[in-house]
């Protein structure tokens, strides 16, 4: 059975060690925080200047001045701090974020990421902090469905959409597999979802998939 959204997030969360400072993108990446056990201290940073973000507030305990990058209400954990945008992005650009988790339209075998624009003329592009994170975080992992809704591969030889960052993705978590992106080798299978085969993952990928 392929992973569902929460299982993908949980599979990724299992690989996040204690002590990392982690920035989560919008969508499935946001779910990762729910799957890091409370006893494992991981610091979640939000681009709008929150370091030490906690889960969503209980009803009645919302603080309207406390939101994350997705504009959702959040809480703080003990040890949390605030900074403004210049300092938040200094933290990001300056390489102080151990891991950034993003969604993607496409990831290429050289690590190129496309996740911000589809190139359609009537839709305004919207980049947010994705390019800063792609360029600045110590490592960037992608969590996404393995293929598009109409079955096209999202792991590709070369991205067809406009790039967010060049050679920046180190690992991809999909509903089918966990795949490393290595500079010399390209896509290398690391793990499979239960009941999924290497051949199935290869068939649904647009580039060569290597076994270790």
């Amino acid at each position: 059975m392929p992973f569902d959204r929460n299982q993908m997030a949980a599979r990724l969360a299992a690989d996040v060690p204690e002590g990392w400072c982690v920035n989560l993108g919008i969508g499935i990446p946001t779910l990762v925080a729910n799957h890091v056990p409370a006893e494992r201290e991981v610091i979640f940073q939000s681009e709008n200047g929150v370091i030490g973000m906690g889960p969503a507030p209980a009803k009645g305990a919302e603080d309207p001045w406390l939101i994350n990058a997705g504009k959702q209400l959040i809480t703080l954990v003990k040890g949390a701090s605030f900074v403004g945008h210049a300092d938040s992005f200094a933290m990001i650009r300056g390489g102080h974020i151990d891991l950034c988790v993003l969604g993607a339209f496409e990831v290429a075998e050289n690590g190129d990421l496309a996740n911000w624009a589809t190139g359609e003329n009537d839709t305004a592009p919207a980049v947010g902090g994705a390019m800063d994170l792609a360029a600045g975080a110590k490592r960037v992992w992608v969590v996404m469905e393995h293929t598009t809704k109409d079955g096209r591969p999202k792991l590709v030889e070369k991205c067809s959409y406009p790039l967010t960052g060049l050679r920046c993705i180190r690992r991809v978590y999909t509903n089918l597999a966990v795949i490393d992106v290595l500079p010399e080798k390209g896509f290398v299978l690391r793990d499979l979802a239960p009941g999924v085969t290497f051949e199935e993952v290869q068939a649904k990928s647009g580039a060569k998939l290597h076994l270790n």
Binding site: E47, A86, S88, F89, V127, G129, A130, D132, A135
Partner: peptide, 26 residues
């Protein structure tokens, strides 16, 4: 369209008297 961190730094630079800067972003 300006990446969010670049937007912030462009504004900060203006306030800090720095006319331009280099970033790996984008």
């Amino acid at each position: 369209i300006t990446p969010q961190g670049t937007l912030a730094e462009r504004i900060r630079a203006a306030g800090a008297g720095i006319p331009a800067f280099y970033t790996a972003t984008a």
